[in-house]
Computed example of a mutant assay.
Amino acid sequence: MIAATHYLNFPGNTEEAMNFYKSVFGGEFIAFHRFKDSPGFEKMPKHEQNMIMHASLPLGKGLLMATDTLDSMEQTLTPGNNYHIVVHTESEEETNTLFKGLSAGGKIEMPLNKTFWGAYFGMCRDKFGIQWMLSYDINHPTIDHVKS
């Protein structure tokens, strides 16, 4: 495993929140993407297209990442479900093993799959209700900013 990071969900104010964290912690965003930058965005409601799909801010040796929740995807934000623990892995095999273990007795929210952004990625909620994202960066498997 390379590192674990924090992934926050916001009800439409990710841009404001991440700019606030940037002002507190410093640094520069290494990713800041809107839903309109993704394939199929034209099928989304207009008011959601400019919302934040993914933002990443270096935080020490890890990352603080965030996204906006979408009503059109029936995502409801309540206290306790507004974060994920992201595990950055070193191989697809490790990703498969950890995902299988974490999702046992829980719920797979997004099956492991190769994504358009170059990761082997999946999301699950374990049997204790903790939300996990597992990600193996296919193009850059040992990115320096996420090494522990």
Rank of each mutant, 00 (worst) to 15 (best):
L70T: 06
N9G: 00
G122C: 11
I138D: 00
G60H: 08
T142K: 15
L98M: 13
W117G: 00
N19H: 15
I52E: 00
F116M: 08
F35A: 04
T14H: 00
A66D: 05
H47A: 12
V146N: 11
Q49E: 08
I30C: 06
H6L: 13
D37C: 05
L59E: 06
E15M: 03
G101S: 09
M73I: 03
G26W: 02
K107E: 15
F32T: 10
L77D: 06
K22W: 04
F35D: 05
L77N: 05
C124I: 03
F32L: 14
G106E: 09
G105A: 10
I52S: 04
A17I: 02
K100D: 14
D137M: 12
I143Y: 10
E15R: 14
R125K: 15
H6S: 14
P111A: 13
I52D: 04
E94W: 10
M53S: 13
V86F: 09
M65R: 12
F35L: 02
N81F: 07
Y21Q: 07
I2L: 14
G62K: 03
K22F: 10
G80R: 10
K61V: 01
V87L: 15
T97C: 02
P45W: 04
K100F: 02
G105N: 11
Q75I: 03
D144R: 03
S148A: 13
A55Y: 06
F25L: 15
N13Q: 09
Y21F: 13
Q75L: 02
M53Y: 08
D37E: 15
I52P: 02
P58Q: 11
G118Q: 08
S38R: 12
A55K: 08
E94D: 13
L98Y: 09
L102S: 09
L57N: 09
E90N: 15
K147W: 01
T5F: 00
G106F: 09
F32V: 04
W117S: 06
F20K: 05
E109G: 01
Q131L: 12
L77M: 13
H33W: 07
G80F: 09
G12K: 08
P11I: 01
T95G: 09
N96S: 10
V146Q: 06
S72N: 08
P58D: 14
P58T: 02
T97M: 12
T5H: 10
E28S: 14
E28Y: 01
F20Q: 07
G118T: 05
H54W: 04
M133A: 11
L98H: 05
D137K: 08
E94N: 07
F128M: 10
H88F: 11
T78A: 04
N81G: 12
N96L: 06
Y120P: 06
L77K: 11
V87E: 00
G26A: 12
M53F: 10
T67N: 13
T69K: 00
E93R: 05
K36G: 00
K43G: 06
S91C: 05
A3Q: 11
E48L: 03
F128P: 03
E94R: 11
E90T: 14
L59C: 14
T142D: 13
P11M: 02
A104I: 01
A17Q: 13
